[in-house]
């Protein structure tokens, strides 16, 4: 299937359409021409994706066909026992929680889901969590900690939902409580930003012993649109890329700042070109990190987690 092209992929898209046609024609003994085009396609993808601008990275991270929480759920995990509801208000569909199996590990899986169809996206507010979502997640994570079940958090949100109900129900309070409790929750926590790491809404479930990013994800204090709106009054095709560059929000930047531990490599041309390969890389990462963490004593785990966040920041 030819992926939907991003604005900077016109040449790549042309090649993909041609290749699709040639392969569809069924010429089994791939002609020299096809092989040459395939090489060209790979070279072009590599060149483009090795040099993505920060704004292009944001576009990749938001690609409609990029694997989301439910895709990874099917591709990485063997079982999922979803646990619903926050016991106070409702069941936020933007944030999913449940027990899952990952190879030898029994874990609690927590993650934002953005949805793909319009109906699904409306149901889960495009991955924007309400206060009840954070209350639900923390509730389930406390159960996990009680039985020392490790937690995996998959972050993919443009931000916590900005709305009247969200404010009435204490968006600040619930995110604040979640962050505070996660800094001391006595069980291993592995966090991965799989797509969008949108400010406080992301951080609400991104406190853990390991925090990593998929290669083309972004993680930022403010969305490029929000930043552009504040600094240059309007978010347009000129100011959004400027904001994305200024904020230094790519996985490479964050690793440089010591904010993330690992960059999980994506298949050539981004996770949406091969969700299977992206999922394999994610799975390998999670298993490796969980194996390291489950052997630590709770005391050591929490002391290291404290240090991890305590040392962040730069001043003179």
């Amino acid at each position: 299937m030819v992926p939907e092209p991003l604005p900077f992929e016109a040449d790549i898209h042309q090649l993909e359409l041609l290749l699709d046609k040639l392969e569809g024609a069924g010429g089994e003994g791939a002609s020299d021409e096809t092989r040459r085009m395939k090489r060209e396609h790979r070279a072009l993808l590599k060149k483009t994706y090795d040099n993505l601008s920060p704004w292009q990275t944001v576009e990749v991270s938001r690609h409609k066909q990029r694997p989301q929480f439910l895709d990874y759920l099917g591709l990485c995990f063997e079982e999922f026992v979803e646990l619903h509801g926050d016991r106070a208000f409702g069941d936020d569909r933007a944030l999913r929680t449940g027990f899952a199996r990952l190879g030898e590990h029994k874990i609690l899986l927590v993650g934002h889901h953005k949805g793909r169809t319009l109906k699904e996206r409306q149901e889960c507010f495009y991955g924007c969590t309400h206060p009840e979502g954070y209350r639900k997640a923390l509730g389930k994570m406390r159960i996990a900690a009680k039985f020392r079940v490790p937690i995996v958090c998959l972050i993919d949100t443009p931000g916590a939902y900005p709305g009247i109900g969200a404010e009435e129900r204490g968006q600040s309070q619930l995110i604040a409580t979640s962050i505070l409790e996660l800094t001391r929750l006595p069980t291993p926590i592995v966090c991965v930003v799989i797509g969008e790491g949108g400010s406080g809404g992301a951080l609400g479930i991104a406190i853990g012993d390991r925090v990593s990013m998929m290669q083309h994800a972004y993680y930022s204090v403010i969305s490029p649109e929000g930043c552009a709106g504040i600094l240059w009054k309007t978010a347009n095709d000129e100011t959004k890329p400027r904001a994305a560059s200024a904020l230094r929000m790519t996985s490479r930047d964050l690793q440089q700042f010591g904010v993330i531990d690992d960059i999980i490599p994506e298949p050539l041309g981004g996770a949406h070109r091969s969700p299977r390969d992206a999922a394999d890389a994610l799975k390998k990462h999670l298993q490796r990190r969980l194996r390291e963490l489950v052997s630590l004593s709770t005391e050591e785990l929490l002391a290291k987690r404290y240090e991890k966040f305590r040392k962040l920041g730069q001043f003179a």
């Binding site: 800094t183 406080g200 204090v221 504040i230 305590r310 962040l312 730069q314």
Partner: peptide, 21 residues
């Protein structure tokens, strides 16, 4: 959080929270 310090300012939320916990 202070936009001009990017992701490091977001991380101050975590840092202070850890100390308060």
């Amino acid at each position: 959080a202070r936009m001009q310090e990017g992701i490091l300012s977001l991380m101050q939320m975590a840092k202070i929270s850890a100390a308060l916990a």
